[in-house]
Design a protein around this nucleic acid. Structure first.
Lengths: 150, 150
DNA sequence: TATTGTTATACTCTATAACTATA
DNA sequence: TATAGTTATAGAGTATAACAATA
């Protein structure tokens, strides 16, 4: 084999970071018109199931508390979610998606569908299934921290 | 199926960005002792084959010229590469990896081997092969821009 | 005293634009 | 006039730490 190392591709962890960064950039562009960023979308997706506390969102999104506050402020200002005090523990804020928030999620889903169609244009259906399965089996940092704590 | 959407996993492009960001963070930690960042490593990897101009590195790494200058300054200060003028066109800088640079690449390779072993601990050999193949077939932004230009 | 959330601040990374030197 | 590279500056994104309110 002639020397043809280079690029990120032959080093899996570099390739993953590389294409992840591209995916992120492309999402920002695709979501541009909605005024939302990928993390706003992820936040709304976590809320789609039902109300959760900010503490819980911090763990799920793995962001700094101050970052979450900024994200929620954006979304609440846009009317996409509501914060209310938890009567059982008034320190807690319970965060709940609104109808506008669900509508926004529909819009972003459509935009992401288009983006995925383009980004994954050269992949077969079984490639997509494999990628989904493999990503699901990657160690996330949350899991890693659990190991350290346990 | 009960509602269990949430997280990044069920939206492929979000999952890719998510795990890519984790890979990047973990690489920074793994490379911490070497003082290099993932992009330094990628730069050295592109140089491993032979000397290239800065212009060429800008295209391969898809970074802003000013970003590349900073990267190369770091690496040159550490003695990991050398810049010299191209006699044929004195505007050009030819960038060449040094022996120290190759040694640093060996060190980082070992660190990344360890990281990959941990990050991909739950993947089989065929999973790894599939991931490598799939990443190679993803549309990169460079390819995308070529389409727009052509 | 510990926890939830917020604010203020500083730091890093990146992007923009102006500049030098060659062609 | 255009190109390769550099520098300086401003902006966004993130992390740190101090703060207020509950428990």
């Amino acid at each position: 084999m002639a020397a043809q190392p280079q690029g990120p591709a032959d080093r899996l962890v570099l390739g993953l970071a590389w294409h992840g960064a591209i995916a992120n950039t492309r999402m920002r562009a695709a979501l541009g018109l909605t005024g939302l960023m990928p993390r706003h979308v992820m936040t709304l997706r976590w809320l789609a199931d039902g109300p959760v506390s900010q503490k819980e969102l911090i763990e799920r999104l793995e962001v700094d508390p101050s970052v979450l506050v900024a994200l929620l402020n954006d979304l609440e200002d846009g009317g996409l979610l509501q914060r209310r005090r938890d009567p059982a523990d008034r320190r807690r804020h319970i965060v709940e998606i609104t109808d506008s928030g669900r509508a926004a999620l529909d819009t972003t889903d459509a935009a992401l569908d288009e983006l995925e169609a383009e980004l994954f244009a050269d992949l077969t259906a079984s490639d997509l299934a494999a990628l989904r399965r493999i990503l699901g089996r990657l160690r996330s940092s949350a899991e890693h921290f659990e190991c350290q704590e346990g």
